[in-house]
Each structure stands twice: as structure tokens, then as C-alpha cells.
Design a protein around this nucleic acid. Structure first.
Lengths: 228, 228
DNA sequence: AATTTCATGTGATTTGTATCACTTTCCAAT
DNA sequence: ATTGGAAAGTGATACAAATCACATGAAATT
């Protein structure tokens, strides 16, 4: 129980809450381990829980019926996901797949909803996170509508570096195990186009590539691609 | 005061609240009229209020610095907008412009925040609306990434018909005063492409066009374009 | 009503990017 | 280490959609 409280304290949306609320949340949280490749839930499944990540990475994506994929986000430690099904009794609007072995906290919607109804602080935290998500989503829409593929590629790299990169004296290492195809599915473009963009960024000295690892050598140069 | 309460009752996010809350909201709401073309706020302005529409239409858009525009949404009577700046102390992430003379209710963030902190019901309503917005935004992202321009055009027409159309024995009339350029800016395409798509839809008998007015003659046929 | 100005439709052309085709590289299994 | 199979890089081609160009139509201004 105490261990759970510690865990929950490190999740941003909960961290501001007072001790008693933390303990309540801890008491309704179930911890679970998932192996890489596991589907936590699929788009269309009944939405019944909120998840937060203790460790590992989770990919959130939508698929079209002709098999194409759009990756909406990649979440890591401390992030919450599936928050959209709270209070809504809707299906999950996207699929969650484990990219790196993960330990995840799970809170059933019914339990959390009961709590939120009496804890405005918690509601506020949820509002904040939804605000942020909405903001990001609209930014992406703008990029998708108004930027070309190389710019979008740079944008995604920069975002990934910020969220998941590890800085080592000036350079940032990105060790997500993303295939080019998956990167393309985040950017909304073709595998080959990503290859070409990365080659370009490499040639100009912005990044360095060794297999799946991408090193951002010169963030400023990469940011030079941004526009809009 | 009583008049305001009536007004507020018809706004979905408030309508579920109990009388005392309604009255409080009414007491902190300012009503204001705007003429067509007025900019209510601009992207980057300090976010300080939440708005809801009593009558008229408001266009929410983002602009790139090379002058191109992406229209995120068009809101009408009963809709809330600028909800993203609640509890966040951020700038408006988009611009709000009046498309049709509008009467708008304005609630200062500070006032509403104080209220929400002690009214979990209200917080829930806000969460619900954010959920819906996020869902819509992600749907759009998927469309933008995975559908071609004609499909997106059909999708936007269908959405506009649902939100703003007037049904008259089977056919739906769309009388938004949107230029082709603006339609294109909703779809994320070029003016000319929209013209061609509309011509196509007209030729196949899905719609009828007379100036800015678009009549959806055969919704089923138009929906035939949808995919994914 | 006449004239100017702006919005729209539509063909022609260009451009960006998806797709195809193939080679090379990487990784896993033996 | 060797081999087989998938993922990645890259040139060639095809295609959708942007852009250009212009004619037509509608709306605003005088």
C-alpha cells in the first residue's frame, strides 16, 4: 500500500494531491506488468480504466480498415493514458501497445469517477492534462495540414527528443525502438520518405544514425527546419 | 439575472447543474454582442475567459506565419469555446473570429475557476467537453493523415451539415457563409481542389450548390465517400 | 445601371510525395 | 561464423494535389 502511494506521487496528475487523496488512489490502483508487444486495449474496446506508466513505453495509435496506422503518441514513465474514457462511457478511441516492457498502474473508471466527484483538485488535474493533450493534438493538426514531410519529420524528432531523449553533454540520444515504418506512421508519411529525410538531416550534420538509435548532434540546426 | 439563468440553462455544459450553481454562473457571466468579422481573441493573446454562444457563429483557427490558415472548428449556438485556457494560465492557442453576428456569454477564468474548485459537477462537465474535443481532434488527425482530399471534403461537409445544417424534408441546407477558401482551410487543401470536389459531388447528385449555400440532396451517397 | 473588385470554376502544368523496384544492411536463428 | 529473412536506403516512376493561368460569375462601389 505504501509502496503504491510512492508510485502515485510521481505521476504528475496526482502529485499535487494531498496525502489522503493519494492513499485513496493507491488503494484503488492495480499494478500490472506487460511485455513488449502486448496490446493493452484496442480501439473499439469498452473503455473501463485509466492507466499510468511507472516504467516502459506505450504506443497509442489509430488504424484505418485498410491496415494503415497513425501513431498519436508514445508515452513513457509518469504519463497517463486512456483518460478520454473517464465520465464518458465510450470505447477507447485508439489502441495501446507496449513498446518496451512496462509496469503500469490501472484505475478502474468507476472507482476513479467516484473519487473525482468528491475531489475537485483531482478533477482540475484531469482538466489540465486534457487541456495539454488537446493543445498538442491541435498543434499536430496544424503541422499535418500546413507543413511538408521533412518539416514534420524534424518536428517529430524534436518532440521525441524532448519526451524520451537522454542528454549527454550537449547531444541527445533517442533510443526508442521505433522502426522507420513506425516513425512514418507518427509523421503521416511513407517509410521511404522518412529514410530520405533522415539521410538529409544526417548529411547536414543535424543528427547521427546508428540503427534504431538516433543522436541529435545539432538541435539548433534541426530546429532550423521548423516553420509555421 | 433571471434572464441570464435562462440563457445558461441552454448551454449543454451547464444545463445539468443545479439551480444554485446556475445562478452563480449567471452572476459571473457577461453578455456581449459581436459583429461579423470581429476578432474576439487572437492566438497568442493572454487567455482570460471562457465563452459560450447564445446566437451566431464563431470560427476558431490557427495561422501559420506565411499567412496560411487552418480552421479547427466552427461553433454555433450552445457551444463553448476557449475552454483550454481554464486552469492553465496559457495563451489562446487559436484565433476566434465572428462569422455571423453573435451574442456571446463571457466568464472570466478566475471567476469560473473559483466556482469549479468547489463544484465537482461543473468540473465533470468540463472534463466531458474536453474529452469530446480531444476525440474530434484525433479523428481529424487520422483523416488528415490517411484520407485523400475528396474524402476529407465529404467528411467536412457531413460534419458541417450535422452541426449547422437545417433539415427540410429529407434534404439538408447549409447556409454558413463560408468561402471556398475557408472550406479549403478547414479541409487542409487548396481552394481549387475544393471546387473540383464539390463539382464532383454535384455531378453525382449528392449535393446541390447555389452560391455559398450548399444543399445535401443525398446524404447516403455523400457518406459513400467515407472510409477508414 | 455601370464599373470595378473579388470569388469561383476549370484546364494546363508543376511539384511533392507515394509507390515500385532493387540493393544493401542489419539482426536472428542455426 | 553462416545463412536466411526482415528492415532500411535509394533511384526511377506514377500519381495526387498544389500551383498557375485565365475565363466566368457574383458582389460591392460609384
Amino acid at each position: 500500500m505504501n509502496k503504491n502511494t510512492e508510485l502515485i506521487k510521481h505521476v504528475p496528475i496526482f502529485s499535487q494531491l494531498e496525502q489522503s487523496a493519494l492513499e485513496k488512489i493507491a488503494s484503488i490502483t492495480v499494478e500490472r506488468k506487460y511485455r513488449k508487444g502486448t496490446i493493452i486495449f484496442m480501439e473499439g474496446d469498452k473503455g473501463e480504466a485509466l492507466y499510468f506508466i511507472k516504467s516502459g513505453k506505450v504506443k497509442i495509435s489509430k488504424n484505418s480498415n485498410d491496415g494503415r496506422e497513425l501513431i498519436l503518441n508514445i508515452y513513457g514513465s509518469g504519463d497517463v493514458f486512456a483518460e478520454v474514457t473517464l465520465f464518458n462511457d465510450v470505447m477507447y478511441p485508439a489502441t495501446a501497445e507496449v513498446m518496451e516492457d512496462a509496469v503500469v498502474g490501472i484505475i478502474m473508471n468507476t472507482d476513479l469517477e467516484a473519487l473525482v466527484r468528491h475531489n475537485a483538485d483531482l478533477a482540475l488535474q484531469i482538466i489540465k492534462i486534457l487541456n495539454k493533450r488537446l493543445y498538442m493534438s491541435q498543434m499536430k493538426l496544424k503541422q499535418m495540414a500546413l507543413s511538408d514531410t521533412y518539416v514534420r519529420t524534424a518536428e517529430v524528432l524534436i518532440k521525441l527528443a524532448k519526451d524520451h531523449g537522454v542528454e549527454k553533454d550537449g547531444i541527445i540520444e533517442l533510443r526508442l525502438n521505433l522502426s522507420r515504418q513506425e516513425l512514418a506512421n507518427m509523421i503521416g508519411t511513407a517509410r521511404e520518405t522518412v529514410s530520405r529525410a533522415l539521410s538529409q538531416f544526417k548529411k547536414e550534420g543535424s543528427i547521427e544514425i546508428s540503427g534504431k538509435k538516433i543522436i541529435i548532434q545539432n538541435m539548433e540546426k534541426l530546429k532550423g527546419w521548423l516553420q509555421a
